[in-house]
């Protein structure tokens, strides 16, 4: 190949390179930071806190774990006779135990799972725990989710039905679920 043809070939390559370059961008890459703050349970997007009512005595907030809320029916500190728990073959209703507030950005539907025998450790027999809004014990939240607009709150109660379980401490995790409507 003589020199002239070689140079012409190079020129053609360079020209097509220029043609490719006329787009505004061929590739772009951008790094952006993503941060997540873990709030206290009572300050979070789905704020969970004790009510101001008497049954709030059954609520614990773990100060070592961002005030994570839990409910302990075994160890009420506010009852007059310092009772140890619920009795067998009984139905107990505890109104206004804790409070859920929608502090997020969207209207949500809130449900809370029902707890039955196998959910507990140790496994129980005839033990059911349901959560209900306000005093509406016939509309448990595992069946009838409630709608909460942003900035609104709902107090929650517990209905506990005991069959004939042995006298024992039963533990379970209930799932609070909030879905944008």
């Amino acid at each position: 190949m003589n020199r002239r043809r070689l140079l012409a070939g190079l020129g053609a390559v360079a020209t097509s390179g220029v043609a490719l370059g006329t787009g505004a961008f061929t590739s772009a890459e951008a790094d952006r930071s993503v941060g997540v703050t873990v709030a206290d349970d009572d300050q979070a997007y789905l704020a969970l806190s004790p009510t101001q009512a008497a049954n709030a005595t059954f609520v614990n907030q773990d100060s070592g774990a961002n005030n994570e809320l839990s409910i302990d029916i075994n160890d009420a500190t506010g009852t007059a006779d310092n009772g140890d728990g619920v009795g067998p073959n009984s139905v107990y209703e505890f109104d206004e135990v804790f409070r859920i507030e929608n502090q997020g950005t969207q209207e949500i539907e809130v449900s809370i799972s029902e707890l039955v025998d196998d959910d507990f450790d140790p496994t129980a027999s005839g033990l059911t725990v349901q959560f209900y809004p306000g005093t509406d014990v016939d509309s448990p939240l595992h069946d009838d989710p409630i709608t909460l607009g942003t900035g609104t709150a709902q107090v929650i109660g517990l209905r506990i039905e005991t069959g004939e379980p042995t006298v024992e401490n039963f533990n379970a995790d209930a799932t609070v679920r909030a879905e944008a409507t």
Binding site: G35, V38, D40, L46, A47
Partner: peptide, 30 residues
């Protein structure tokens, strides 16, 4: 609604799950 968590205050934007504008200060623990 969730662009509340997109911080456009600087020239280089960022995602920050902190204030929701409705009282929330962050995600729930656990």
């Amino acid at each position: 609604a969730n662009d509340m968590y997109f911080d456009t205050s600087g020239d280089e934007y960022a995602v920050d799950f902190v204030e929701s504008g409705n009282g929330g200060n962050g995600v729930n623990p656990n």
